[in-house]
Write a protein that binds this DNA or RNA. Structure first.
Lengths: 249, 249
DNA sequence: GTTTTTAATGCAATTATTTGCTTTTAATAA
DNA sequence: TTATTAAAAGCAAATAATTGCATTAAAAAC
């Protein structure tokens, strides 16, 4: 039997059943497990399936790479995400909110970082699933089609059941006096629940949003522990945010 | 024997069987293996076949373009999804499982269909969020990186709290006697919970999976109400699946 | 028609791949 | 934790590919 035939058969099995055991394949093809292992290794290297301990799984839809071409102020957000990343400790339990800045944080998580990560954002979850050592737990609920996060009573109830070490949130608007505010009431309720579920909360916020406000209040500025912007903490734009019992990064 | 003639024969063999062994050809044409090797090398250089260790394969055989839509047996799955779609009633509450066939169902939901749709699959959720009139509710929990669905105690508990009109599930393996089986124990538990949370359950399954089985059992065949394959319900491949108290579509 | 040149083929020696087996190391499950 | 199972690494036998060379067949030149 030709190697190509064998690999074709393996791919078929994987595509058909999504997941196969090397031992099953070896038996089916009547070759040694070593051969199957080597084949699967090759196919994995060619990105035609994914090798896992004891078998192989279909790539299927797993290779999702959303285009981040049209992200507003991507450079600033990347800068923020990088700074925020330094706050993460190995083996801690995180919660990552929605929004493009938080998404960027998820994307930049190192591949060798072991953490447990809750999220209620669909794009963030997609990113986290690319990180081999991140255990991802999704907070379910009704989806907001606009923000791609889950919202509503069920989401909030589930958040009330957990307490994470560190959460990263975004906000629509932030002001030294009015605190964090949003346009959408449901989102505010969800963010409140996120903050309540966190020992410490980190706000990721591009400087452009500083000194802006809207109708619904999420929390006061000193309810969050750290605020990360793309600016140097000494920057004078942040003057009003000092002396607010908040750590600037 | 002319070289041209020989090469023509080789190509015929390759097209006919998708693959050939050099030794077989040499014997069949009664020339030395060297000659066959040289012929195949030439044909490979002319891109008329692909030379591999020990033989040759047809171009179509190994043809794999990573950019192309990568879903195995997409046509069959589309056919299944279309048939399954006819079972959906306006304003009903659905639950859609993971897997590429279920994903295809989600993709093909009409834009004007108003339904409430639960899911535990991340890709399915992505699709549903494109449907303006579908209210999407995600069943949260720990993510399986392989299958991109949520699994585990929390997921199952949440499933126990709901009762949907109609659920669509896939399966890894299905056999008239052994019923629906899977490779993964966690997935079986989740699927059990899905079935329990449904007034009616529809199994989407391409015919290639018929009469296959694996180690963990999800349920018996008659625990699902309808099975949809790409085949005509009268097809003889489905003979063993009739008289199983199951509706074939 | 003969000679020369060129191409095609088969053979043998060498080199490279493939494969299964064994041992060691790593990962997972109980 | 310990026991079990899988992966990796190294080895050896079998098989395939490559190369150079000799022989034969075909084509071209004289």
């Amino acid at each position: 039997m030709l190697k190509e035939e064998r690999q074709r058969t393996i791919l078929n099995e994987v595509e058909l059943h999504n997941r196969v055991l090397l031992t099953d394949i070896a038996e089916k093809l009547d070759v040694s497990i070593d051969t199957v292992r080597r084949d699967v290794k090759e196919l994995d290297a060619e990105n035609r399936l994914r090798k896992v301990h004891g078998g192989a799984v279909s790539l299927g839809f797993a290779n999702y790479s959303p285009s981040r071409n049209n992200v507003y102020a991507l450079d600033e957000k990347t800068e923020i995400a990088q700074k925020a990343g330094t706050l993460i400790k190995e083996n801690s339990v995180l919660l990552i909110d929605g929004g493009t800045t938080c998404l960027e944080l998820a994307r930049l998580l190192p591949a060798d970082l072991s953490v447990t990560c809750f999220t209620l954002s669909l794009p963030v979850a997609m990113e986290l699933l690319n990180k081999p050592k991140v255990e991802t737990i999704f907070i379910g609920g009704k989806f907001s089609k606009d923000s791609l996060i889950t919202i509503g009573a069920s989401t909030i109830h589930q958040l009330s059941q957990i307490k994470v070490d560190l959460s990263f949130i975004g906000t629509g608007y932030v002001d030294p006096n009015f605190g964090l505010t949003e346009f959408d009431w449901d989102i505010v309720q969800t963010k409140k629940a996120v903050i309540a579920a966190s020992k410490k909360t980190v706000l990721l916020c591009i400087s452009e949003k500083l000194n802006s406000q809207h109708r619904f209040k999420t929390c006061s500025l000193n309810d969050v522990d750290t605020m990360v912007t793309e600016l140097d903490p000494q920057n004078k734009l942040l003057a009003n945010f000092r002396n607010q019992n908040i750590h600037l990064l």
